[in-house]
């Protein structure tokens, strides 16, 4: 879990790490076959890399391809290793470091349950509107909101909901894609 704190590679690496850890979003194009997610996740845990967020779903059914989006925190040197190690896996086609390749689009979806009454409900709805959160379930004492956007926007929305009666949250993890005409 602390890969960024540990100098990689050698048992004899006594030098202090000089590189700073960075947060990067990787997009991994893989064959959609049994065990592929376990291979990718197993590689991260076996080699001591971080996973901050992970999403996976089939994206091209006819070709049997899935895309895995991983957010990780590591030094530039370890980031290169992560990419190369992922590419060694037989069912992995390509790995793109979206963060290194320019400003990628990053989105996440959250479902946020808030319970309360009176003035709190009014305030909750006002804030939800400002964040373009949709009400997807309502009772007389609760709402469930669907909110999408950058993770930081979702963080802010959730923070605002805490004093208004936040009950629970689920988040999908990050989905990311590069800008412009080119695909992976």
């Amino acid at each position: 879990m602390n890969a960024h704190l540990q100098p990689s590679g050698s048992a004899y690496f006594l030098a202090a790490e000089t590189q700073k850890p960075e947060r990067h979003t990787l997009s991994v194009l893989v064959d959609n076959e049994p065990g592929i997610l376990a291979r990718v996740v197993g590689l991260f845990s076996a080699r001591g890399y971080n996973i901050d967020s992970l999403t996976v779903s089939e994206t091209e059914h006819e070709k049997g391809l899935s895309r895995i989006t991983v957010v990780t925190v590591a030094t530039p040197k370890v980031l290169t290793q992560i990419k190369l190690q992922l590419e060694r896996l037989v069912p992995v086609h390509k790995v793109h470091d979206l963060t290194a390749e320019g400003k990628a689009l990053e989105r996440e979806l959250a479902l946020v349950k808030v319970a309360g009454s009176g003035e709190h409900r009014v305030e909750t709805l006002r804030l939800a509107d400002a964040f373009r959160a949709q009400v997807v379930d309502a009772t007389t004492e609760s709402f469930v909101f669907e909110v999408t956007g950058k993770p930081s926007k979702i963080d802010s929305f959730i923070a605002l909901m805490v004093p208004l009666g936040l009950v629970e949250v689920v988040r999908t993890g990050l989905a990311a894609i590069s800008r412009g005409p080119e695909g992976m």
């Binding site: 590679g9 050698s10 048992a11 004899y12 690496f13 006594l14 030098a15």
Partner: peptide, 8 residues
């Protein structure tokens, strides 16, 4: 690491 010895 058996080859490099102390890496720095």
């Amino acid at each position: 690491d058996r080859i490099t010895g102390r890496i720095d």
